[in-house]
Design a protein around this nucleic acid. Structure first.
Lengths: 227, 227
DNA sequence: CCAAAAGTGTTAGGAGTACACCCATGT
DNA sequence: ACATGGGTGTACTCCTAACACTTTTGG
């Protein structure tokens, strides 16, 4: 298999949002070291693929998931971070709209699951994966506030209320809903659709779509998204 | 020498500030590939040293410099970024107060020099080092505005005017000096010393010192440095 | 006395924040 | 009718940004 990089891996922390909570993808380890602990999905980098490509391939193979967003996080290099042999890990974090994807298992990852983020930190995590997860969560929190990445955790069509709940869940604090709504709408990056929610009690909500094309255009002109 | 990682390097982009301009450390290459081009200082990672340690060691060995500040930037992994063989590079950026350090050459780096940043971008740069430099400059500009790292480019004792000029140089734009001064002083993180400048025309300036201990304390309580 | 750099206040406009009620709908 | 979630306006405060003259010093 891979020969050039027998000691460099990519590890990915994949965030999803459902049931009004943030979740991360964890794999239960069936072998030592750290048997029965949980670990982030990861793989060795193969010849002729970039680290980004390796993450996409690995997630596809091991879990069947296709990310909406992927970003390199940090490279972890402590000589003793793996007890067997020295391994350098290039860590990534990714975002996914979990509602229309099916989680598969594979030969390597027989037990893969979405774990609510607070629960995940309580689990026994292999290697330095707790540290990586913490780093990723901080990056997600920061980035959510000055780049429109929250939309990558939601379906294509969503309500302001869903977006609001997502922000509260990630930042783990309450926000003022009126101020939030005003701010988000002031960017004029949400396209109002003709749909409305239904099928549940309460007033029907307007359904929006994020205008990515317009955002990319504005960004070039120096526009700043900031919640 | 190193056996575990024959294809992982660290590259460092070191910034310094003097003559009212930002400079970066470049090495002129004496060998192919990219003979006579300029490159960032770099080295292979040795067994039993972290990437951070490798950067400190490499800079000490090749240039004799001791950094005030070092931060991991990004890991570059494109399979063809080195024409000879596949190499992954963990890039760092560092800050240094160049005024009291002497630049040495070494066997590997016979021509090492500080190059003014705009001039540096005009040079022929080896590998993907232009891309790395651009990435580093953007990070420096961002970080300067919400963390007090500018002080690491200045001597221990400095005037508000020097700090102001540094900010203008890094951000490459004019700022309002009165607003800048008010903002900086409002943090109460500059300790006024009993010294004053002298030896040149113009009014003598107060000399300050950055109160790092107090900053670290405030940061824990949730203080936010932001220019 | 002149050139150079330091130092210093005020104001107007915009952004952020805090706050509470009515509306539409399904059960 | 009532419970649930959606939608909206105002006032106050604080921060930002714009702006120019006086002071001190060395030459």
């Amino acid at each position: 298999m891979n020969n050039k990089f027998p000691n460099i891996t990519v590890d990915a922390i994949v965030f999803s949002y459902f049931n009004e909570k943030i979740h991360v993808l964890l794999i239960k380890r069936n072998f030592d070291p750290f048997k029965d602990n949980y670990a982030l999905p990861g793989a060795f980098i193969k010849d002729n693929e970039s680290a980004d490509d390796a993450v996409y391939r690995m997630l596809k193979d091991e879990t069947g998931l296709n990310l909406e967003y992927l970003e390199q996080l940090y490279t972890f290099t402590k000589p003793d971070r793996d007890p067997r042999q020295r391994i350098i890990s290039i860590a990534y974090y990714g975002l996914i709209n979990a509602t229309n994807q099916v989680l598969k298992t594979s030969q390597h990852a027989t037990e893969v699951s979405w774990v609510e983020i607070k629960e995940a930190f309580k689990r026994n995590l292999a290697f330095d994966h707790k540290e990586i997860m913490l780093y990723a969560l901080q990056r997600l929190r920061n980035k959510l506030q000055y780049e429109p990445i929250g939309f990558d955790l939601l379906p294509e069509y969503f309500t302001i209320g869903e977006l609001y709940n997502l922000y509260c869940a990630v930042l783990d604090k309450g926000l003022d809903r009126r101020n939030f709504t005003r701010k988000i709408l002031s960017f004029e990056l949400l396209k109002e659709t003709s749909f409305k929610t239904g099928g549940h009690v309460g007033r029907k909500a307007k359904i929006y779509e994020f205008d990515k094309i317009n955002y990319d255009r504005l960004k070039k002109v120096g526009f700043n998204f900031e919640i």
